[in-house]
Simulated scan of single mutants.
Amino acid sequence: MFTDQQKIGAMLSAIGLFFGFLGVLLFLDRGLLALGNILLVSGIFLILGFNKTLNFFGQRKKIRGTILFFLGIIVLLATRWTFVGMLVELFGFVNLFGDAFPIIISILRKLPIIGNILNHPIVNKVLQKADSGNELPF
């Protein structure tokens, strides 16, 4: 089903997301955020392969997200403006991977504890509003 390279890429991406989350929890720790970004991008590269990765990041409709995502990583690595870099990177991340959010939410709704939270009427209303208008409800 998956090659060994794709399994390693999935694990690198998961560890990268974990380090990014941990970096945010520890008040935007620059080292953890940088490590998380590097692991995430390398994991995506291993999952998709060289040509598909270039095609994904080079799509015409996703070019703004690509530029902002990598600009945020560069700002995070090269300057002391961690918060600004994270905001730019987060905006690029949402533009790049925003098409996958409804799929991720539908998978998360099937999980035991998270599914109960996401299926709560208030949370469900917010998620439906965000999904229908492709914009944040607040």
Results as ranks from 00 to 15, higher is better:
residue 27 F to K: 14
residue 119 N to A: 05
residue 44 I to Y: 09
residue 16 G to T: 05
residue 118 L to Q: 01
residue 115 G to C: 03
residue 80 R to G: 12
residue 5 Q to S: 10
residue 135 E to F: 15
residue 40 L to R: 03
residue 97 F to H: 03
residue 73 I to E: 00
residue 4 D to M: 13
residue 108 L to W: 01
residue 45 F to M: 12
residue 37 N to Y: 14
residue 90 L to P: 00
residue 59 Q to M: 13
residue 126 V to Y: 09
residue 119 N to I: 02
residue 108 L to E: 01
residue 17 L to F: 11
residue 87 L to W: 08
residue 12 L to H: 06
residue 123 V to R: 04
residue 64 R to G: 10
residue 61 K to Y: 14
residue 107 I to N: 06
residue 88 V to Y: 02
residue 55 N to D: 14
residue 61 K to C: 09
residue 111 L to T: 13
residue 65 G to T: 04
residue 86 M to P: 00
residue 14 A to M: 12
residue 128 Q to E: 11
residue 58 G to S: 08
residue 12 L to Y: 08
residue 134 N to E: 12
residue 25 L to R: 11
residue 76 L to M: 04
residue 113 I to E: 03
residue 21 F to V: 13
residue 70 F to S: 01
residue 37 N to R: 09
residue 105 I to S: 00
residue 79 T to E: 02
residue 112 P to W: 02
residue 97 F to Y: 09
residue 23 G to P: 00
residue 109 R to Y: 01
residue 131 D to I: 14
residue 37 N to W: 12
residue 23 G to E: 01
residue 134 N to R: 15
residue 101 F to T: 02
residue 46 L to R: 04
residue 73 I to A: 08
residue 102 P to C: 04
residue 93 F to R: 07
residue 82 T to Y: 02
residue 65 G to P: 03
residue 8 I to Q: 06
residue 93 F to S: 10
residue 8 I to L: 15
residue 27 F to E: 09
residue 2 F to W: 08
residue 117 I to H: 02
residue 71 L to M: 14
residue 90 L to D: 00
residue 126 V to Q: 08
residue 27 F to W: 13
residue 104 I to Y: 13
residue 112 P to G: 03
residue 44 I to D: 01
residue 2 F to V: 09
residue 102 P to D: 01
residue 61 K to I: 15
residue 1 M to F: 11
residue 76 L to V: 02
residue 44 I to F: 11
residue 50 F to R: 10
residue 55 N to Q: 14
residue 47 I to M: 10
residue 11 M to V: 13
residue 48 L to C: 06
residue 72 G to C: 05
residue 47 I to L: 08
residue 19 F to S: 05
residue 110 K to Q: 08
residue 101 F to C: 00
residue 104 I to R: 07
residue 113 I to C: 00
residue 57 F to C: 06
residue 86 M to V: 14
residue 97 F to I: 02
residue 97 F to L: 07
residue 66 T to A: 09
residue 137 P to R: 08
residue 102 P to V: 04
residue 92 G to M: 03
residue 15 I to M: 12
residue 113 I to V: 13
residue 27 F to D: 08
residue 92 G to E: 01
residue 121 P to D: 02
residue 28 L to G: 04
residue 79 T to M: 04
residue 37 N to M: 13
